[in-house]
Design a protein around this nucleic acid. Structure first.
Lengths: 230, 230
DNA sequence: GAGTGGTCTAGACCACGTT
DNA sequence: ACGTGGTCTAGACCACTCC
């Protein structure tokens, strides 16, 4: 008796047929029950395979209408966003960080807008330079709403990074991320590059329910590349 | 009789407990069987809920070791990479594109290296400027291996974009993507910006099995932001 | 109305990795 | 060795949506 058909088998075979254009873009593929008979497995096995393919955007599924090969595979890429220390150490370098600034101040309008704060309540601002083998790697500019995480004002931020402290002590939340490119400007000084150097920028805003927690701006030293596989 | 517990119910409740720090980062949560008893549902229902939470990076699961709340939850972001025309039209603007260049030429070493081509066989090079409401939006520089998709040499690339043609006519494949920032340089002319403007760059290389198909470099006009939710 | 995917169940076997 | 998650099965009911 042979091994049972796994959902991975089904997924691989369906993927093969799509790639080989046995089922070209837009084509209606057989129903779950039919495929289950063909592959000699349970319908739920086929279901899981097709569901996962649909999640990656390769298939379009609708009740009653059936399953079609997507006409424009909206490719989805999954980006891994590592903790900075781990990212640096994974490349074999030594991580070190310097707290350039740490104060309670009124946030500029742009920061308040991102956090959805209309009042100009004071925020904790921190600027940290991360170094890989003592070379500037990343400049982190963070604004924290102390109302959301009161304990942070007493945290030993000179020893543990704000990022790690928040992961350990703040309630988990969701937020958004934006990627863009900017000229270094005054940040070029800390990153040891020209003011007109093009830098990769990541901005992240997180909330706890409706309460804003933190806005972070990461400026990577020139040459940084974020990679992923689709 | 009440409705059965769905995997979404389980997912929501587990998420609530993580956020409320009932199960803090690093904590071992009860096993599937135990949770199934608590929620009065089948183990497979719990399994699906926990599996999906693990996929987003919120839980770490290992056989025998059990399921733990992830120590660094912000790890995975899913980027949608839309077809350029749709991206522009979705913002309410009109899409137009201009084919600036289209020729068969020997690829520079950097391009050959990305495609893994050691020989200097000639490639099809295309440079396309995409406009949103007649304003420069994106400069696309593409190199295609004609061996992989012979038909492209006869395609009406002045009417349909190479991207769309490939989606329709090439076998689907996987590849990799890199995001970075560069100075505009000579591309500033087409994009109507200064040569030292910081541009968001996306580079994508795709293969069909082991055969390289295409390398694309996208240079977005200044101010472009790629957004996602975590 | 009828066909398709979406999901739940109860049970089973097994792979893996910790112990 | 053994406990945990990973997966398959067979059957069932239901929701959605196209006709």
């Amino acid at each position: 008796m042979s091994q049972p058909t796994t959902y991975r088998d089904v997924k691989a075979e369906v993927l093969r047929r799509i790639r080989a254009r046995v089922w070209p873009p837009g084509a209606l593929i057989p129903g779950e029950e039919s495929l289950a008979r063909e592959f000699d497995c349970a319908r739920s096995t086929v279901n899981r395979a097709l569901r996962e393919l649909a999640e990656t955007g390769l298939l379009d599924r609708r009740r009653k209408a059936g399953t079609r090969v997507s006409l424009n595979p909206v490719r989805r890429a999954t980006l891994e966003i590592p903790v900075i220390r781990q990212e640096i150490e994974a490349s074999g370098a030594t991580h070190r960080h310097m707290l350039l600034e740490c104060r309670v101040a009124e946030a500029p309008l742009a920061v308040r807008a991102r956090l959805g704060l209309e009042d100009s309540l004071p925020l904790l601002q921190m600027q940290t330079l991360h170094l890989a083998d003592d070379r500037p790697y990343l400049l982190e500019d963070r604004w924290v709403n102390p109302d959301a995480v009161p304990g942070i004002l007493d945290a030993p931020l000179d020893r543990i990074s704000a990022n790690e402290w928040l992961v350990q002590n703040a309630a988990l939340t969701y937020g958004d991320i934006e990627f863009s490119a900017v000229a270094a400007g005054p940040a070029g000084e800390a990153l040891a590059c020209a003011a007109d150097a093009a830098l990769f920028m990541v901005e992240r805003t997180t909330w706890q329910g409706v309460q804003p927690i933190t806005y972070v701006r990461l400026l990577y030293a020139p040459g940084y590349r974020m990679k992923t596989v689709i």
